[in-house]
Design a protein around this nucleic acid. Structure first.
Lengths: 205, 205
DNA sequence: CGAACTTTAGACCGAACGTTCTACCCGCTA
DNA sequence: TAGCGGGTAGAACGTTCGGTCTAAAGTTCG
């Protein structure tokens, strides 16, 4: 339905059974095992799809990788938007975002940040995959900067960068060390950061 | 010389011209372009060595990867040992280590932490490469914990983990964002951490 | 019905992968 | 002088890689 020929956004078979199976399978496998390490053969096998079907929906493996990261980006975006919407103050939103990150690290099968992992495999700055990574990180930093500015205008950029740095460290270490300890260290750092940054507000106003 | 037959540590041709060329070439290429992305062909070509020579010195590519990480580990170890030896107080040593990390991030061609990058490509915990990563990180954490304990016995574990988290975040972001800003954020965080942790000493003693 | 589209099944491509092999050369030392 | 180890040179192994192609079956809908 709504696939009428006169529809302005016609000729886009966005969701097809096979395409969706392909993408969700790729998302799982790429995240769990890395990108260069898994071939097209394995993805189409586990998605129960033929090679021809794969190349009908994705021009190349690289395109699938980009789409995979877009998928993860949408997930992250959704989770963070929800965390912000559920709280009235910016400080609470920041803590809720930290909670979301902490929950992710504790989840079984956690394998770090999909974007940091991809960056390790795609160092070429001009590569579409790398640019996807940069774009995601810029969005995340901007989101945090806006929230930090609502807590205290002063040095909100530095505070947001500090938040991102703790997050990156926690995400990187989360699958290389006891996740509980990592989350503990992370949450202490974030709470301290938000508190200190909040005190600036009272001092300057 | 000192390669006599009666020498107790004989029969170890540790350093051979070709082997060293092979290892240093692999170190550069693996760090710059990733591990799965580069083949044996390219390494032996750039090292100007034949395939047979490669397999004379390394049983497999995986062994070369492990040796590569051991090489980087020795470099890190050397730099940090030197930083500690050059300062009389533990607090100064910690700041010197941070300086070393900051200098690395600013260096052209910086491509993040070799171990974090390798971890992204070798998720299997039982894989020798992954275990090499774990071992390196444990050594680093232990080193920092010892120094933190010299600054203040109380909660030195948490302080060391905090240091590592900031380092991981800085190393991860250093090649995805303006390195100067990353280093700035990192150094502020470390200075604050060391200061706060140092104040604990006066409070408890 | 018949046209258009999606998917299946699988053969096929050239290239690159990690690895093994034979054959010969060279410099060392026993 | 003979032997041995490290090196070169290059062919070859079987497998997997990403990607293309053909032919046939199933679905949807005008």
């Amino acid at each position: 339905m709504t696939r009428g020929t006169t529809d302005t956004r016609a000729s886009e078979p966005r969701t097809s059974e096979a395409r969706q199976r392909l993408l969700s399978t790729a998302t799982q496998i790429f995240y769990a095992d890395g990108i260069h390490a898994v071939g097209v053969d394995r993805i189409i096998a586990e998605a129960k799809v033929t090679r021809a079907t794969f190349y009908r929906h994705f021009p190349s493996k690289d395109d699938l990788v980009v789409t995979y990261l877009q998928e993860v980006h949408q997930m992250d975006r959704g989770a963070i938007t929800a965390a912000i919407a559920a709280h009235s103050t910016a400080a609470d939103s920041l803590l809720a975002i930290a909670d979301t990150i902490a929950a992710g690290i504790k989840r079984p099968g956690f394998r770090g940040c999909a974007f940091l992992n991809a960056a390790a495999e795609f160092p070429d700055v001009n590569h579409p995959v790398h640019q996807q990574i940069i774009a995601h990180r810029q969005w995340f930093l901007d989101t945090l900067t806006t929230l930090m500015a609502q807590v205290a205008e002063d040095s909100s950029d530095a505070a947001a960068r500090h938040f991102v740095m703790l997050r990156d460290g926690a995400m990187a270490a989360g699958c290389l060390f006891d996740p509980d300890l990592v989350v503990d260290t992370f949450m202490r750092g974030i709470e301290g950061l938000v508190r200190i940054h909040g005190q600036r507000e009272q001092a300057t106003q």
